[in-house]
Nucleic acid binder design. Structure first.
Lengths: 199, 199
DNA sequence: TTCACAAACGGAACACTGTTCCGTATCGTC
DNA sequence: GACGATACGGAACAGTGTTCCGTTTGTGAA
């Protein structure tokens, strides 16, 4: 995974191709979303399709590689926001906005995160592993400060925000950020009496 | 569209096949979601694929035909709930629960509703045409009663609820109904000061 | 009852996906 | 320069949706 993991150094052409592939994939994702056809990416990179699969066995691997920096940045922004904000809730809100912005600007990424396709399972896992703990800390801090309810798991919230971001770049009438704000607002109030849960 | 629209009556075998197709599609959708392969549906119905396309030119047409009754029922429940509930907000809440339940129990329907695939455009249009006005009335009534904010368009809310329902049947840890409830709760409070909107 | 023709059917064929596999080319080393 | 390991390319396969047209079937008229 990480660059420096022991093992014999890869051949020069392999390293070059991997780099080309990352750039080509980033461009293809920008142009056609994270579902861009494998052949398109291969052509952009000037390699055969086999080379893609050798370097990135699943599409998830490729997507993770392309967006790893941004996911890491998002993860690191959590504690920083918590330290630098007036309230934990404000930090949470800003962090969620960061996360939502990231998803909204990556065509189809939010959808891929929700796909039940096996090829996307590890993408899902990576996002969750990396970001849920961060979200959890923000949530816990805000709950401890009495600013929000304490009964929503970070995983649930992130799923929800991710879902709200699906298709946000396709319909100008759909304001995902607004809905995310609404969801966060819903977090502030105690759950209303459950008149409707018992059908 | 409607059964009774003039024109010469269809041939008996055509009517029979259409009926078989509807039942086969319903079964296939239950078993494999609304993305069930065309050939599967054709086989279940004992017809060739050409016959599907003759009766239902796009997948959206087939889905709409299969679920029309339930969508209509949902649409009709709106005014009924408004008349029979203590408050407009309670009616809204119940109606949204109805809508969410419908989506959650139909594998992949929520996702299809969000797809940018051309084949699903008319599905999207049908749902919106039929349900947005209903939602709008509930929203307007609740807003008029001062129970919720008045600045969220029905279209936006329905998109949001639909999105939250995506994948709800795939991950037991994901509680879509809970999040929908949170969204509704967010509707009750005035929008918090926008500290984060101006980055 | 038979006939003729419009209506409808079936499924082969095509286009476009992802994925695998192996003969060939290239790199790094001795 | 030669050799072995590494990596490459793209043909081939499998699974989708969709179209098209030769064949079959239903129906109304003779």
């Amino acid at each position: 995974m990480a660059e420096g993991t022991s093992g014999p150094r890869k051949r020069a052409d392999a390293r070059r191709n991997e780099q080309n592939l990352l750039e080509a994939a980033a461009a293809a994702f920008r142009a056609a979303g994270v579902d861009a056809p494998v052949r398109d990416i291969a052509t952009r990179a000037g390699v055969g399709v086999g080379t893609i699969y050798r370097h990135f066995p699943t599409r998830a691997d490729l997507i993770v590689a392309v967006y790893r920096h941004q996911v890491e940045a998002c993860a690191e922004a959590g504690p920083a926001l918590l330290a630098g904000s007036d309230s934990a809730h404000a930090a949470l809100r800003r962090w969620i906005d960061l996360f939502a912005d990231f998803l909204i600007t990556k065509h189809g990424l939010a959808g891929a995160l929700r796909s039940d396709d096996d090829a996307f399972r590890s993408l899902h896992a990576y996002f969750l592993d990396r970001l849920v703990p961060v979200c959890d800390r923000l949530l816990a801090a805000a709950a401890a400060a009495g600013e929000i309810r304490a009964d929503i798991p970070a995983l649930t919230l992130m799923h929800g925000v991710g879902n709200l971001c699906i298709g946000a770049d396709q319909d100008p009438r759909y304001d995902a950020r607004r809905l995310v704000g609404l969801l966060l607002a819903g977090l502030r109030v105690p759950e209303p009496p459950e008149q409707t849960r018992a059908y």
